[in-house]
Design a protein around this nucleic acid. Structure first.
Length: 377
RNA sequence: GUGCGAUUAGUUCAGUUGGUAGAGCACCAGAUUGUGGUUCUGGGUGUCGUGGGUUCGAGCCCCACAUCGCACC
């Protein structure tokens, strides 16, 4: 029984709270979803994801999981939930973006997308139909439609052509979805994806078409791919009145903590981003007091807690000097601690947003928070 | 003890017919938005072992010394 229910709204903005119900439990929105591409949120135990970070849903990626371990293994394992031992909700990206970003050699046609594996160069074809089948085998609670991610600097002709292709794929994806069943006894839903690059009229056209295929939620794709951040916010403002209030809205791949608060203010409910984990692995920490680069020499003799306001146990168990040392020494523990901290911060960020939306003071709180979290320490 | 070779950035090493020095890694910073444990951008941090000599000018040529390595007594 899949549903999205809006529970509160902020008087000064488009921000709102809600609850998504799935067979694997509820998700409170706004929510941040840690990225676990190949069946692992890199460097973080599932136990810590639940108990320390308090993640409510994580991602997997169809492109990566299809290539490795492959569909035979996933089917034999009984789906991704069992395979990776995660009993909360999972969302899988379709792989459209990865073909765009990872595969050097790719050919997009109305039939689908031919590409070569970034791992071994082997040749593959994703069609809307086999993409549904693949995501059925993976068994994610929320599946994403196959789309073409349009570069942020594309011209209008390309953006329109790309959008038409995505729309054709969506129609076929939906048909296949309706004529197939979940394989593991829990319900699945799928989100269509709004493209249209940076043209407001294309975005509206894309949204109206995508909404015909949206039951629980809808995604906004093709943003934060090279366009100025103001343009991204403008696209959200264009889409906000077009999308009904009873659909969960997922802004794909975004973003910085400030991006997330600004997007919540413009009506977005769900986010995912590699930034807390990938940048964390490289020494970047996000905190309520600003951004720290733990590789910087200035932390070498700072024996205070990693983050005095942090909600993760690692924030109080270890010092900045120690974490700095681990990064300089190239220890994998550094990446683990930074990932744990950053994910806990991102989940705290959306939790605080929910609280202030429910309190009705989200807008002034957001203004002050953005100033704090964008500082450089 | 004798002979040969080496000595240049934190490190491993380049350095042309003599014109006051460069690269990789490390280090110091910056970037990173639906993840390849990355990748990209910028920064040279130096008593050229020491002391003399030749020369307008020496990392480079000559002498002595020091240290290290190899070979032979």
């Amino acid at each position: 029984m899949f549903s999205f229910v809006k529970t509160a709204s902020d008087p000064g903005s488009s921000a709102r709270t809600g609850v998504i119900s799935t067979d694997h439990g509820q998700i409170r929105t706004p929510i941040f979803m840690p990225v676990g591409t190949v069946g692992s949120v890199k460097g973080v135990y599932h136990r810590d994801l639940k108990e320390d970070i308090k993640a409510e849903i994580i991602l997997g990626n169809t492109y990566h999981l299809y290539l490795r371990p492959g569909l035979d293994t996933l089917r034999a394992a009984g789906g991704l939930h069992k395979f990776e031992n995660w009993d909360c909700p999972i969302l899988t990206d379709s792989g459209g973006f990865q073909i765009f970003s990872l595969s050097q050699i790719r050919k997009i046609t109305p039939e689908g997308c031919r590409f070569q594996s970034h791992i071994d160069g082997s040749r593959h074809l994703f069609t809307p139909e086999n993409n549904v089948d693949t995501q059925r085998i993976i068994g994610a609670d929320i599946m994403m439609a196959l789309d073409e991610c349009c570069p942020g600097d594309a011209d209008r002709d390309y953006a329109l052509k790309s959008l038409k292709l995505t729309q054709g794929w969506l129609e076929r994806y939906s048909s296949r979805f309706e004529e197939t069943e979940p394989l593991y006894g829990h319900e699945q839903t799928f989100f269509p994806i709004i493209q249209g690059c940076t043209w407001p009229d294309l975005r509206v056209m894309a949204a109206e078409h995508a909404l015909e295929y949206s039951k629980v939620g809808i995604a906004i794709g093709g943003l934060a791919v090279g366009e100025p951040v103001e343009v991204m916010y403008e696209m959200l403002e264009v889409l906000d009145p077009v999308i009904p209030q009873d659909r969960a809205r997922y802004l794909m791949g975004v973003g910085t903590p400030a991006n997330i608060l600004e997007s919540i203010a413009r009506g977005v409910d769900m986010f995912d981003c590699v930034m807390p984990t990938r940048n964390g692995r490289n020494g970047m920490l996000f905190t309520w007091n600003g951004i720290m680069n733990m590789r910087n020499a200035k932390w070498a003799d700072d024996f205070t807690e990693i983050d005095p306001e942090g909600t993760s146990f690692v924030d109080h168990a270890y010092t900045r000097a120690y974490l700095h040392h681990l990064f300089i020494a190239g220890e994998m523990f550094a990446a683990m601690l930074a990932s744990e901290h950053n994910l806990a911060f991102y989940l705290d960020l959306v939790r605080q947003a929910r609280i202030h939306i429910e309190n009705g003071d989200f807008t002034p709180w957001k203004e002050a928070a953005v100033k704090r979290i964008t500082r450089r320490l």
